[in-house]
Design a protein around this nucleic acid. Structure first.
Length: 158
DNA sequence: GCCAACGTTGGC
DNA sequence: GCCAACGTTGGC
């Protein structure tokens, strides 16, 4: 089993929205970056765990955990003319963009902020620390455990 | 295949 | 809203 981090803007789709979704499950649509796409298509497997990260908002950081419940399939929004994610260069025989389904698992006890992650020297690998703007990124087991541990502590420890 | 121009992401 | 860091595009 592997670990991942998916970014989302909570104004558009938050961990709460995932919790309140039908069957607490949602398609993770709209990834339009090739490196992120490759992770979605080739790397993310059924049963993998995903940190849901809130970006471009007041409280930037890891908000909760989800599980992958369906592996890569063509992102239907790439064919949808009315969607912001429509891609004229995509076609059904040769889809460009892929989604997975994720199912809500938990909120973290406390949101682990980007600031706290950056300040924790024990977290070494995660692309967040390197200013990466990838929307889908792998997380090592070590970094995963660090972030989970941080979520269990009271604020002010970092 | 280089690289400048342009667009996007995302923290602050 | 600013701007730095990337990613993409297109002329050559």
């Amino acid at each position: 089993m592997a670990y991942w981090l998916f970014k989302t803007e909570p104004d558009a789709f938050s961990i709460d929205d995932l919790k309140n979704a039908p069957a607490q499950t949602s398609m993770w649509e709209g990834v339009r970056n090739y490196q992120a796409r490759n992770f979605m298509r080739d790397g993310v497997k059924h049963g993998d765990l995903v940190m849901i990260y809130h970006s471009s908002c007041k409280q930037v950081g890891v908000a909760g955990i989800a599980t992958v419940t369906r592996e890569a399939y063509a992102d239907p929004t790439q064919f949808d003319l009315s969607s912001d994610y429509y891609d004229a260069k995509a076609n059904a025989e040769n889809p460009r963009w892929f989604v997975v389904d994720v199912t809500y698992k938990a909120h973290l006890n406390k949101l682990v902020s980007l600031q706290a992650i950056k300040a924790n020297n024990a977290i070494t690998e995660i692309a967040l620390k390197k200013g990466g703007r990838l929307s889908v990124m792998p997380v090592t087991e070590h970094d995963w455990q660090q972030i989970i541990t941080m979520s269990e502590k009271n604020s002010g420890h970092f």
